[in-house]
Design a binder for these strands. Structure first.
Lengths: 239, 239
DNA sequence: CCCGAGTAGATTGTCAACAATCTACCAACA
DNA sequence: TGTTGGTAGATTGTTGACAATCTACTCGGG
């Protein structure tokens, strides 16, 4: 029934099965990146015919791609009116950080558990990249380097599901950071927080790393809305 | 420019703005439920023309709905061959529990932080519903009641993002539970674990609740693949 | 008996056109 | 002046048809 689809176990795999990305997937990724880059500001409408013309595809595949982003929560649909880039209020930002904290805490624990040396190398590299922009702590480059650090962390957790959610959240985070400037006072402080995380990972101290991450996230949230998620910081210290 | 779209602040809101769900969203929800119900077993193909005929819609909206489920990770696309319901191996199940643990830990903390009495009532109700099926600890009703408990927990965290991810994960969990029968030895044990969680929430003890949740998730994973996520249980106790 | 080429059928991928709906603008009226 | 009705334009929602691709089956040769 299955023909020769299944790979016989005795043979060595010499070529990886080639993955052909579907057109909607490609379009979705392009839109994803464009939103992350700020090409489509929050609240702006994504008109089908215009985008289809820009991308050189028909409206069909484009609509499918936009539905993907809608499922991610990056676009919101108004029936018969169109799709718009999400615009977030304080409540959304708080929610975003709740989710982001959940994801990154879990990722952190996974990274420590896996004990992969490559992870530590990559994380140290990420911090080093941040150091290059120490003189401009609120510039775009520093923000991107910051994002890459967290991206690296979650990637090394090797969890498809955590990565998928995190990807969406990072785009939303970038949108917020773009809107609100001047979050960090000094570049040193910003880098030190990340270095402390790496140090805790190297030490294999899950509890310490966990506490640092919670604090780091609370700081980030505080800078955006001037509010925190009080109880989270008590999760470890109370026990 | 904006016309009369914005609601003037002086007036009292007497009617809530009506939300019209788009057709792809409705179809996506129906497919979602169908997959959760087991109408489409893992690995089965979802043929467009057939489903379109069943639902009485054209292939366009149906494809858009399927793209949404693809973004969620419930369907996988094979180019020019079609969309299939995901079938999960042990590695996927482990990943699923990593993500689920992350989500439910965060939800737990949020529920305790919010201190909403309705949450405790609903959770107690959920445990009570489980007790009705104490004689058949591995039946479908018990499994559904179990799911409803966790659904209730995450709902009361009032986090759009956590809920969205959790919804997907619960469907995947249900798929796994359907495939592997006989997970719990006794109904009492299963109910006690959940009751303990509620008790910890009532007591407002974040650390205890957190530890219980981690253990609960590890138990669930162990029943499915005979393996655990060792380091997670050390996150709290070590500190 | 095994292996390869070729073919038929079915399914997905893409497109262009039509119908339905909404928004914004303008005029008429109390 | 503020509200109501009508109209034009644009955009989305939906459909059906056509092209491209893959799978499974069958036939011929070694």
């Amino acid at each position: 029934m299955t023909g020769t689809r299944q790979r016989e176990p005795g043979r060595k795999r010499v070529l990886t099965p080639l993955v052909q990305e579907s057109t909607p997937a490609i379009i979705a990724r392009k839109l994803h990146d464009a939103i992350a880059s700020g090409d489509f500001p929050p609240g702006s409408q994504l008109t089908e015919s215009g985008l289809a013309a820009d991308l050189g595809v028909s409206r069909g595949p484009l609509r499918e791609a936009m539905q993907r982003l809608t499922a991610e929560g990056l676009l919101v649909s108004h029936r018969n009116r169109g799709l718009f880039v999400v615009s977030m209020d304080d409540s959304d930002i708080r929610d975003m950080y709740v989710a982001r904290t959940a994801v990154e805490r879990a990722a952190l624990e996974q990274v420590i558990y896996r004990g992969d040396d490559d992870a530590i190398d990559d994380l140290n590299d990420a911090v080093a990249q941040m150091r290059e922009f120490i003189d401009d702590p609120n510039g775009v480059e520093m923000a991107d380097a910051d994002m890459r650090f967290h991206q690296t962390l979650v990637d090394h957790a090797a969890s498809q599901r955590l990565s998928r959610l995190h990807e969406t959240i990072l785009v939303e985070t970038r949108m917020c950071l773009r809107a609100m400037r001047g979050t960090y006072a000094s570049g040193k402080e910003r880098i030190a927080e990340h270095q402390a995380l790496v140090d805790a990972i190297v030490a294999g101290d899950v509890a310490a790393a966990d506490a640092l991450m919670i604090e780091h996230m609370n700081d980030g949230l505080h800078r955006l809305v001037g509010d925190t998620i009080p109880d989270l910081s008590g999760a470890v210290s109370t026990g």
